[in-house]
Amino acid sequence: MGRKKWLLAAGVLVALVFPLGLRVPYHQHILIMILVWATLGNAWNLLGGYAGQASFGHAAFFGLGAYSAGLLVHHLGISPWWGMLLGPPVATAFALPIGLVCFRLRGPYFALATLALGEIFRLVFTNWVAFTNGARGILILPEFTRKLPYYYIMLAIFALSLVMVRVMVNSKLGYYFVSIREDQDAAEALGIPATRYKLYALLPSAFITGLVGAFYMNYVAFIDPHVVFSLGDVSVMIILVVMMGGVATLWGPAVGAAIYLALSEAFRARFGAVSLLPFGVLVCLVILFMPNGVMGEAARLGKRLAGRREGWGGEPA
C-alpha cells in the first residue's frame, strides 16, 4: 500500500514538472491530446467498460460540450471558458432522455441505437445553419498563445475523471455496474434496477465527455460538426483507445491514449493522410491476441505470477 502511494506521488510530480522541460510546443500538444483521449476514454470506460453498455455515440456528448462553448461566443460574444460550465450540464441533460430510450435495448442493439443518435446529432448540427453556423464551423481566438496553461487545465480534468471513476467503481455502484454487465437478468432478479444504474453510469460519463468537448473548443479554437460529432474519429476512436489499453481497468484508457497518439503522430510524418493504418492493424492484433488490452493482460499476467509464488489459494484483491 505504501509503495502504491509513493508511486502515485511520483506520477503526479512527473505529470506536473515534465512538460516544463519540453521546449517544443508540438510535444506539449501531444501530451495535451493524450490527456484529452485518456479522459474521454475514462468517461466511456465507466459506461462501456464497467457497466458493459458499449456506446457508439459518445461523439454526441463531446460535440454538445464543444458547441455549448462555441455557440456562447458565436451568438452572445461570451467567453468560451464559460462553456466549460455550460457544456457538461448540456451534455448530461441530453444524456438523460437518450439513456431512457436506448437502455430499453441490449448489447449490439444498444450499440446501434447510440450510433444512429450520434449521427443524427452530426447531421442536425450540419444542417441547422442558422443556429450552428453549419459546416463552416466556429472559429474563435484562443485565450493563451502558450500550451502550458492548457496542459494544466486538461491535467486537472483528467485527474477529476480518474478520481471519479475510481470512487464510483470502488463503491457499491461499481459492483452493481459489473453485475449488470455480466448478467443483466440475474442482476434484476437480485433487485438491482438496471436502467437506473445504467443511467448512474451514463450521466457522469456524458458530463465528463461534455467537459472535454468544451475544453477542446477552447484549446483547438476551431470546430465543425464533422470533427466533433464524427463517428469514426470520435465515437469509435474512444472505444478503440479504451480497448487497446484495457476495458474496465483504471489506467487502461490512459495507456491506450498514449499508444494511439504515439502511433498516429509517428506515422503522420511518414504516411500523411493514412497515419491511421498502423493503428488499424494494431487494433486487429490486440483484439485477436490481447482481448483484454494492455492493462488487462498485464493484470492477468501479474495475477498468474503472484499465484505461482503464493500457491493458487491467494487471490490478490
Binding site: 462501456g48 467498460g49 458493459g52 458499449a54 448489447g107 449490439p108 450499440a111 454487465r181 469509435v236 472505444i239 478503440l240 480497448m243 476495458v247 474496465a248 504516411f271 493522410a273 493514412v274 491511421l276 493504418l277 493503428f279 488499424g280 492493424v281 487494433v283 486487429c284 483484439i287 485477436l288 482481448p291 483484454n292 488487462g296
Partner: peptide
C-alpha cells in the same frame, strides 16, 4: 478465431470489424 477468445466485452467482434474497416479504408487511401 475470435469465437475462442475470451474477453470482457461481447462487442469485441464489432470492434474487430471496425479494425478491418480502418485497415481496408486506409490501404485504399494509401
Amino acid at each position: 478465431r475470435l469465437l475462442h477468445v475470451e474477453s470482457i466485452l461481447p462487442e469485441n467482434q464489432v470492434l474487430l470489424t471496425v479494425g478491418v474497416m480502418l485497415v481496408l479504408t486506409e490501404l485504399v487511401r494509401l
